[in-house]
Simulated scan of single mutants.
Amino acid sequence: MARYTGPKARINRRLNTLIYETAGAARALDRRPTPPGMHVRGRRPSNYGLALMEKQKIKHYYGLGERQLRRYFDAVSHKPGNTGELLLLMCERRLDNVVRRVGFTKTRPQARQGIAHGHFRVNGVKVTKPSYILRPGDIVEVRGRENLKNLYRGVIANASPDALDWVTFDSENLKATILGLPGASDISLPVDANSVVEFLSR
């Protein structure tokens, strides 16, 4: 699941959400917002089916496998507060998500690829795990190689980054600084997280 390589447009149409942000997948959702397949248009999904779809949104959007999602759920289920919200906030703090949202890349799969290839450092140390959870005070920057800096400057020049209150981004020095923890308004995925919590609690 963390390395889904199938047609991204089908996932966008099936979940009726812009999960994959490539140009072709986005156009497909705009052009044909109905689910793929011949016999699905008249069918109404059950409550179980709806909850499963919401869970699939989280897995595809953040690039999580089933075991990884359940690990995150176990980590937040005993904390005070809304468990669904806490689950999404943990996903928002992933390194690949922050790299995408500040504008280093155009999509999350691109962010995961760049991190896995060692293009980024956190607090001066090369990190190759896209699932690395960032904390307040962490500094994310492109490694010092000139070819990498030129690559990401080109991407940033054509990117449309999200405005984040909890992260500052220095596009000149290719550096993002984590100021604090994200809040509920910073969650970028429209999803019914409470139904996912009920699904995972079974």
Rank of each mutant, 00 (worst) to 15 (best):
A176F: 06
I11A: 07
P136T: 09
I187L: 00
H78T: 05
V76N: 00
N173D: 12
L86D: 01
L134N: 11
R202K: 12
I178F: 07
Q68P: 04
I11N: 00
Y152C: 03
N150H: 15
F104M: 02
S77F: 09
L151C: 13
N147W: 10
E92M: 03
I187W: 02
F73T: 07
R71T: 14
Y4D: 09
D96F: 09
P161I: 08
A163E: 15
I178C: 05
R3A: 15
K175Y: 15
V122P: 03
R121F: 05
M53D: 15
L89N: 04
V196A: 06
Y20S: 09
K59E: 08
G103R: 01
A193T: 07
K79Y: 05
D96A: 10
V140W: 01
E66D: 14
T177M: 06
R121C: 07
Q56T: 04
K79E: 10
S77E: 12
A111K: 13
Y132H: 11
P136D: 08
F104H: 00
I19F: 06
K79G: 00
R71A: 14
R143C: 02
L15D: 04
L148M: 12
H39Y: 10
N47T: 13
A157P: 09
R153D: 00
R145M: 04
L86H: 00
E92H: 04
R67H: 12
G180L: 05
S201Q: 06
G84L: 02
G124H: 15
A2T: 15
K149F: 10
E85T: 13
V140K: 00
A163Q: 14
D96N: 14
N82I: 01
L164V: 02
A193G: 09
L148F: 07
G42F: 08
L181S: 08
N147Q: 12
L52C: 01
K175I: 09
G118W: 11
L179C: 06
D96T: 07
A26C: 09
V76I: 02
S188M: 04
N194P: 03
T128A: 13
N47S: 12
Y62G: 02
K8E: 04
D138P: 09
P80E: 02
P190F: 02
G118Y: 13
H39Q: 12
G49S: 06
V102C: 05
H60E: 07
S195H: 02
R31K: 07
R3N: 15
N82V: 13
D138W: 07
P182M: 07
S201N: 11
I139D: 05
K129H: 15
F104K: 01
L18R: 03
F199L: 15
N97L: 09
V191Y: 12
P136C: 13
R71S: 14
A51R: 11
P33Y: 10
C91S: 03
R14W: 05
V197D: 01
P161W: 02
G81E: 02
G49R: 04
A176T: 08
N147A: 10
T83L: 01
T168N: 08
N194K: 07
V167W: 00
F104Q: 03
